[in-house]
């Protein structure tokens, strides 16, 4: 056990060499809001929700290694306000139709919005034109909901040992693409049991012919807040790397 510590919101938190601030916080059951982070997959730092204040500097908790003596502000009104704004931008940049979405109640983005007290999109909707790919016999790729967190990209590479997804394009043209000759999911090597098929936090990748099977009141975020859910999550302790 290491004697090294950091301080998060005035609480002293131990850490091991090599851990990020996020790793140390989760181990100490301190919740730092996040969407693109999943224990067991390499940190990505793209959603910026885990932005914390380290000795006066704004950084991503999921990518910055913990270092002895760091003083970190996390659960502050100012930071949560910024996180709410980021969440609003994620909503308006895609087409998130919660009322009819089968992921409603199980969606981490939606749960995050509730967690941060988001009541509207604030910004004008982008209404981007995005393509739905239903070519695969058992999976649907609905880009309307994609928040470009790259969890599927990393799960496919690092856990499934494949390379099915990537992000392509710049700025508002960024989108999730499929690594196949035709660009269609049907022509990729993704399979129903792959982690990449199940990891999407917002329902951009879904199992076909299923939906709305869990009654209202028993869905993930009917039972737990996003903080409870992420802290209680079973960590992917036996992550296989495709090069192992």
């Amino acid at each position: 056990m290491s004697n090294k510590t950091i301080t998060i919101d005035d609480i002293e938190v131990p850490f091991e060499e090599g851990q990020t601030i996020m790793d140390a916080a989760l181990a100490a059951e301190i919740y730092i809001p996040h969407l693109c982070h999943k224990p067991g997959l390499s940190p990505h730092g793209s959603c910026k929700l885990c932005t914390v204040d380290v000795d006066g500097r704004a950084v991503s908790a999921c990518t910055l290694p913990a270092a002895e003596g760091q003083r970190i502000d996390n659960n502050t009104p100012a930071l949560n306000e910024v996180r709410k704004t980021i969440t609003q931008m994620l909503f308006i940049e895609g087409n998130h139709l919660c009322p009819s979405c089968e992921k409603s109640g199980d969606c981490t983005l939606q749960a995050m919005a509730y967690h941060l007290g988001m009541l509207d999109g604030h910004f004008p909707q982008f209404y981007p034109q995005r393509e739905l790919d239903a070519s695969h016999p058992t999976l649907v790729l609905d880009r309307d909901r994609c928040i470009l967190c790259e969890l599927c990209v990393r799960a496919s590479r690092e856990y499934d040992g494949k390379d099915v997804f990537a992000i392509s394009g710049r700025n508002t043209n960024r989108q999730l693409i499929v690594n196949s000759a035709t660009g269609r999911l049907a022509d990729s090597d993704i399979e129903t049991d792959d982690m990449a098929a199940h990891i999407c936090p917002v329902g951009a990748i879904l199992i076909k012919d299923h939906g709305y099977e869990i009654p209202i009141g028993r869905r993930t975020f009917d039972l737990h807040s996003v903080a409870e859910s992420d802290l209680g999550e079973i960590k992917l302790s036996n992550v296989r790397h495709h090069d192992e």
């Binding site: 009322p99 009819s100 089968e102 739905l132 239903a134 609905d142 012919d209 939906g211």
Partner: peptide, 14 residues
Amino acid sequence: QGRPYWEVPYFVQR
């Protein structure tokens, strides 16, 4: 049009 069929009862109830 173009939406998955199992979504429809949830779409149209709106």
